[in-house]
């Protein structure tokens, strides 16, 4: 069993969001970088759990980014995984990144490709589906459970107001959401081991991006809260009904 886990570097969830260069670039000054939480907590940890159950399982990680992505991929290796790939390219758009990952995935002949359900910066939820199409694999998105029986996977995904469980023969691409696994903290042994795990750097394949960002902006600030006394809920209901027209 060979698993490829896609790892993305994102700003910390508490990072201040600001833009520079006439609102065309994300302002990275003072930003702490983390592994995209969906990639780490759900996709990576589930892959490690599968390896713990079956020691012959091989877990590889892939990230698309510059040398500044290496601390993130080392941290991911500290949680688990045998080796990592870094495609040495700046992020262009989802299709560009998916094409790089698909190229690595094709070469490695993986049975399973895991991604997080989305990154917390671009919120595209697109990489998994694009990789699946480029590989001609089935795709299950927003998976909350993943079980493996031989070469068959049983996967539960979120649907509106419920869940749907499906069976699919490997290979398959899965995007992982909450429920797949629980967050782990890397231990000292993992951190030491990660230092010497192979991290292979490759150059990107030539692909045209399909989209480009023209500008960023921040949502307008709220006008300020209107407080209503706790003993006068009727007034709140009146405001919601007449002023906000929300009832």
């Amino acid at each position: 069993m060979k698993i490829l886990v896609c790892i993305s570097k994102t700003p910390d969830t508490t990072a201040k969001i600001a833009f520079t260069d006439n609102n065309t670039k994300f302002d990275t000054s003072g930003v702490q970088w983390i592994i995209n939480p969906y990639d780490e907590w759900y996709a990576l940890v589930r892959a490690i759990e599968l390896k713990e159950k079956d020691a012959s399982t091989i877990v590889h990680l892939v990230t698309v980014g510059g040398a500044d992505a290496e601390p993130i991929i080392r941290k991911a290796l500290a949680l688990g995984g045998d080796e990592a790939f870094r495609v040495n390219a700046d992020s262009h758009d989802s299709f560009y990144i998916a094409s790089q990952i698909a190229s690595i995935a094709k070469e490695g002949a993986y049975d399973l490709v895991f991604t997080g359900k989305e990154t917390i910066d671009y919120n595209g939820s697109s990489i998994g589906g694009m990789v699946a199409e480029l590989l001609d694999f089935p795709y299950i998105s927003l998976a909350s459970k993943f079980e493996l029986n031989g070469t068959k996977a049983t996967i539960t995904r979120e649907i509106e107001g419920g869940e749907e469980t499906a069976e699919v023969d490997l290979p398959v691409v899965v995007s992982a959401a909450k429920g797949m696994a629980e967050q782990r903290i890397p231990n000292m042994r993992g951190i030491m081991a990660a230092r010497t795990k192979p991290l292979k750097v490759s150059e990107p394949v030539a692909v045209e991006a399909l989209t480009s960002v023209t500008s960023f902006g921040l949502p307008p600030a709220k006008a300020g809260v209107k407080l209503v006394p706790a003993d006068n809920v009727d007034e709140l209901v009146r405001l919601l009904h007449e002023e906000a027209k929300a009832l």
């Binding site: 989802s94 299709f95 998916a98 939820s125 998994g128 589906g129 694009m130 199409e133 795709y139 998105s141």
Partner: peptide
């Protein structure tokens, strides 16, 4: 851009080489 849309739209984007804006 619901659960099903998130499953299909990226695949279609890669298939048709058509730029996708999700969300």
């Amino acid at each position: 851009n619901n659960m099903d849309g998130k499953s299909i739209a990226p695949r279609l984007s890669a298939r048709l080489k058509a730029g996708l804006i999700s969300g």
